[in-house]
Write a protein that binds this DNA or RNA. Structure first.
Lengths: 231, 231
DNA sequence: TCAAAAGTGTTGAACATACACCCATGT
DNA sequence: ACATGGGTGTATGTTCAACACTTTTGA
């Protein structure tokens, strides 16, 4: 079959966002409560229609800002997968492109914005039933993020601009539910060239009781060879 | 923004296929020559419109059979990514969901079928210009397949149902352009539980001159821990 | 001075690499 | 018999996991 400029079935195209952050040492996910049918009252991923003149990536970025209420998002966003069963939306034929986004310390949803009905839910406390096929999207997103921790430097997207080795270790332990030997974790991170860069002359000076930790910034490396092990 | 059942912009949705196989120890890709505008005469990925009543995955499988001319495809197909720049098709707004498929020994395109204008191109011999954004899709597909070899048992999809260790090694060497020590490759494969299963009592009896190799089938393992190294 | 947290050292086990050697088969 | 390719053994170097130890800081 080849392209033809006539006689194609029309689809609506939406984006849906799985926005992940770590709050109080727990992996959390932004969900909204649907205010209208279908699935009124169910939890759903934030999202919306792709406009006629914007790219899908642009639509995802736009929705991300609208939903978080941020003026600028300094985390990471990437496309996850596209979902297009004929009956996934009972009203019409909708194809949805799902995205995953990560950032540290995202704020609580603020009343009076588009994010008013949004909330943070711990991923260990998700409802089994969600609107549309959003539960499937969430499972795929969690699989993606857990997998990417192993082979990429994604973990640095979950911490602030400067961070300690302990902060980074906590990301792995939170997302994977594992524990690591402190010394071996440090050596593994430092063994990857330019995974992290020490911030010269600065140490964490918060009210911590012990020795102040060296601060690091994310380096330019993206792939991990060898990968972090999932214990 | 929330869903609304009115006033959404209409999109055409297509699937595009990156079909990979190994022929004469070279990684090859199926391309077609476009017979109409736009991009008439350029090389393009096979693909077509998603129908009104089929899922996107079903559309990809349907196109795969049509393009290869096979009655049944026993390889592997998976979704790659979705491409939706507003101007990627000059005629209208088209969102395309790209898929990657792998199989051993796919036949030459046969005249008289939909695949008549299709051909196999070695990936080292690709044109820099392709129709639409198909060159970008191909680059993403190659990155995906090379990466998946490391962390998954995907390599078994490129060989016949039964295969020798040497066959499997050739897949890695062809896709990655590396060489391996025979003995160490074998030990690495066998170290992953149920990566491959020996076929009892059977050995390759083709006209090979040396000792007959043990035959294996793909096992049920999907992930590789530890991963194959990319040298 | 003590507790807490960061950072370093060390040791035995596991693994990877390179290569030598033996085995089975067709000519 | 011997060339050819499959399969196994092994010595050496490297990395990994566990945990003991030292350093720095706040109270």
């Amino acid at each position: 079959m080849t392209y033809s400029s006539a006689d194609f079935p029309p689809f609506a195209v939406t984006v849906d966002l799985t926005i992940l952050t770590i709050r109080r040492n727990r992996l959390c996910l932004m969900l909204i409560t649907r205010g209208e049918e279908p699935f009124r009252g169910d939890l759903a991923l934030p999202g919306g229609f792709v406009r006629a003149d914007e790219s899908i990536d642009d639509a995802a970025s736009r929705e991300l800002l609208e939903e978080t209420g941020l003026a600028l998002f300094d985390g990471h966003i990437e496309q996850l997968a596209t979902y297009g069963s004929p009956d996934r939306d009972p009203r019409m034929r909708v194809v949805s492109v799902a995205y995953v986004a990560f950032a540290p310390n995202l704020p609580d949803p603020v009343a009076g914005t588009d994010a008013a009905e949004a909330m943070w839910i711990e991923v260990d406390d998700l409802p089994s039933e969600m609107a549309f096929d959003h539960r499937e999207m969430v499972d795929d997103a969690l699989e993606r993020v857990r997998s990417k921790l192993e082979y990429s430097t994604l973990a640095t997207e979950f911490v602030e601009e400067t961070f300690t080795m302990r902060d980074l270790q906590t990301v792995y332990e939170t997302v994977w539910g594992t524990t690591w030997d402190r010394a071996n974790f440090r050596r593994k991170v430092l063994a990857t060239p330019d995974f992290v860069r020490p911030v010269v002359g600065r140490t964490a000076s918060t009210g911590s009781r012990g020795r102040h930790a060296q601060l690091y910034r994310a380096g330019s490396a993206t792939a991990l060879h060898p990968p972090m092990l999932r214990a």
